[in-house]
Design a protein around this nucleic acid. Sequence first.
DNA 1: ACGATTACCGATCATTGATCACTTATCACT
DNA 2: AGTGATAAGTGATCAATGATCGGTAATCGT
Lengths: 213, 213
Amino acid sequence: MPGTPQRSPRKAKGAGPERREEILAAALRLFGQFGLYGVSTRQIAQAVGVSQPTLYAYFASKDEIAAELHARAFRELEARLRVGVRDADTREAVAAGLRIYLDFGLENPDAYRVAFMIEGPHGRVAVAGPVDESDVSVPGHTAFDILRRMIADLHRRGLGAGDDPERMAQSVWAGMHGLVSLLIARPGFPWAEREALVAGHVRMLADMAMRRD
Amino acid sequence: MPGTPQRSPRKAKGAGPERREEILAAALRLFGQFGLYGVSTRQIAQAVGVSQPTLYAYFASKDEIAAELHARAFRELEARLRVGVRDADTREAVAAGLRIYLDFGLENPDAYRVAFMIEGPHGRVAVAGPVDESDVSVPGHTAFDILRRMIADLHRRGLGAGDDPERMAQSVWAGMHGLVSLLIARPGFPWAEREALVAGHVRMLADMAMRRD
DNA sequence: ACGATTACCGATCATTGATCACTTATCACT
DNA sequence: AGTGATAAGTGATCAATGATCGGTAATCGT
């Protein structure tokens, strides 16, 4: 007997994992532009150049496409935070860490929209916390945890403001999500000059988190 | 000729403006619970006790029902801010004004969701700014304007922090919207005790807005 | 060349938001 | 009471949507 597994009759035309990526790329662009519920599966299929049932060979449902995009955006944000958030011992260092979050959202509005601002299938709106509430206690696996530990470090060094680092982390997180989601959701609003607004916002949030001196 | 107008063959069973209110009440409850796209017009009709086409005698579309709820929530928030935001000359007074916004959202999560967090028909997410961008310059007609003027007053009295009241107002606003939307969207998240979190958050935002002394 | 497996598509289903023609109930006026 | 007019409400139906199913064509190892 050959023993070794007889593998894979293999792919046809332009198929394979590439198709899956094409679908995700088209869906991300369309969702970001028209919203999850403003885009039909037929539109996605047409953008990719396949027929609509083909999507269901790669994803179980439209929601699963959105879920995959959500997960990817979330992992990307986490990765950026993980490499970008260093020891935060000065106001500038804290502000720089927070700025990573803001920049991610502003540089990838489509991903941020899909991941954190679009109403989910159960009427819930996903945000930048853990997707599954059950893994909240698992450390190091969520973007929020990285922020939480940055704030906790501040307090360990005696640099943190307030008496509750956890509460402070939640306030700061809310402050960031608020600005990102508003800037993305209302491009027509007469915002102040963006760089000044974002820089000022981050500086203020960093100030909030640090003891006065 | 009688001259006076021959008025109104009048309403039938339980009809009239009441029906419209019943529809709005049912829609608000269902939208808040399951989301705009998680509720069908047939479900709304069943909750009211009428058939589905009846809804279209009172509203031109499902979106118009959501738009009406949006407008009402917006007016209610404005009304609360108008009567609640007095001269803000101390940190506590500013915090109290901000708290009105937060309390509104937390006490009326359904309304806040429907009004400010649900993805609209065009893929836009409505937030607590003016609905129509064109009336941004009209003073006194939006919730944001009330906040804007509170901050501007601070600066006029020499109590404001930073050099740009407009930018500050936008930052503070984002800070509030962020916390409200996160608290509503993620009830399962291990939040800190709500009263302490909210009170601390508004205090911090008020601090941000006021000159250090 | 052949069977097996994969990629894909046309046809179709239930449900959705929305429209239409039709019925029923109430009123003003005789 | 009877009558015509108007308003309120409903069943039937439409196009579009997300999703499923059986069948077809391309590709592979042998």
